[in-house]
Design a protein around this nucleic acid. Sequence first.
DNA 1: GTCTATAGTCGGATAGAC
DNA 2: GTCTATCCGACTATAGAC
Lengths: 231, 231
Amino acid sequence: MSAAKKKAKRPTRTRAAESAGYTKGEHTRQRILDAALQAFGEASFKEVTTRRISAAAEVSLPTLTYYFGDKEGLYRACAEAVVDRYRDRTSGAATTATQSLGEPCSPEQARAHLKMVIRALAGLLVGSSDAERWVRFVGRELRDPGPAFEILYERLWHPGAELAARLIARIRGRVEPADDDRIHALLLLSSFLAFQSGRTISMRSLKWSKIGSAELELVQSCLDELIDAID
Amino acid sequence: MSAAKKKAKRPTRTRAAESAGYTKGEHTRQRILDAALQAFGEASFKEVTTRRISAAAEVSLPTLTYYFGDKEGLYRACAEAVVDRYRDRTSGAATTATQSLGEPCSPEQARAHLKMVIRALAGLLVGSSDAERWVRFVGRELRDPGPAFEILYERLWHPGAELAARLIARIRGRVEPADDDRIHALLLLSSFLAFQSGRTISMRSLKWSKIGSAELELVQSCLDELIDAID
DNA sequence: GTCTATAGTCGGATAGAC
DNA sequence: GTCTATCCGACTATAGAC
C-alpha cells in the first residue's frame, strides 16, 4: 500500500552481459511474464494466484517478488507487454489508416480503411494462439477496472476507439467525430471484442467446435456488412 | 463436492404461516439473495466473499449455509432469481415477437419486432437500478462459465439469441435461421451487452457522467440503424 | 539469482449453544 | 432460525540461507 514504490524494485542488471543479448535473469523474467499473461488471460487479478503463476513458470514464489515487486507490479507488467506486442502486430493497418486521416479522404476510402483495421484485429487473433488470451485479459480489465486499467485504456483502447470513430466520421462526411460516431465505433469494437471474449458462448450458439480462420471469415463478413451500413 | 445434494438442504418451512404470505425465514432468505445479487453483479464468484454478503444482508455467516447450503448454492439461486425477474419484465415484447413467428410475417414486421425486443431489453436497464447489476452478473458468467452457466445459458441467453436469430432470418425472407443470421444476432446482442457491461469505458469514451434515458436513447437509435441495415 | 521456511491474513465451512 | 466460536486450508509477502 506504500505509494512510493511505483516501479517496484526492478532488478538492476546494469553491469556486464549486455553484449550477450540475454542474461539468465532476462530469460527467467520472460518465462514468468508468459506464465502470468496466460493466467491473467484466463482469470481475473484476484482469481489468479501467484503460486499458480510461479508453478507454471517453474520458479519459486519469491522469484516473482524479485522481478516484479508484488502481484500488482506483475499485473501491470503484463499490461505493458500486451500493449507492446499488440502494437507490433497491428501498427501496419493502424498507421496507414491514421495517415489517411491527415489528408483529404473520401467516404469510401475511409470505409475501406475501417474494414482493414478490423481485419487486422481479427487476423491478430488467428495468427497467434495467445492473442486470444490477451483479448480476454484486456476485455476484463476494461470492464472491471483494476491495477492496469489506465495503461490499457490510454495506450490501447482509447487510440483504437478514437481511430475507429474518426474513420466513421469520415464515412459520414464529417471531419470531427460526434457522439453518434463514437457510439457506433464503440458498438462495433465491442461486438468484436465480445465475440472473441465470449468464445464459449459464441461457439455453443453456432455449434462450432472451434473458431478457426474459416469461422472468423464468416464473422468478418458480418462485420463488413455492418460497416457497409454506416451512413 | 458431493453430487447428491443438488438442491442444498433448503429449509423445510412446510408447516403453518403460509396464510400470512411471508414467514420470517422467507424474509431473511430474500435479504440474503438481494445482497448476494448485488455482490455478484459487481464481482465474480471467487472474488465475492460470503462474509461480505452476510454483512451486507446483516445476518451471520452460518445463516447463508442454512438457507443455501454453500456458496455455490447461493450463486445458483441468484441465477435463478435473475432468470425469473428478467422473464417478468421482458415477457411482453418477447412473447409478442415469438407469436409473430408462428404466423406468416413480412420482413418489415419482423424488423419492427426485433427493434421492440431490443428496446424492451434497454428499457429494463433504465427502469430498475439493479438490472444493471444483473447484466454484469449474466455477462460475466456467460463469458467465464461458472456454477450458474447452464441456468443462464439455457433459460436466458439461448432463448433470447434464438429469438433474435429467427427474427433476423425473417427479415431476410428465410424461415429457419442460418449461421449468418445467428452471427448477426450474436453481434447485435453482444454489442448491447458489452455497452452495458462496460459502462466505465463507454462513459469515459463518450465523456458522459451517467447513462440515463437520454444517453440510452442515443445508443438505441444506433442499434436501430444496425437493425435497419440488415439484409 | 534463486531457493526453503515461515509469518500473518483471510476465506469457507462446521459445531453446538440459545 | 440465528447466533458465537473455531477449524483448517490457501493466499501474499518477507527473512534469510546458498
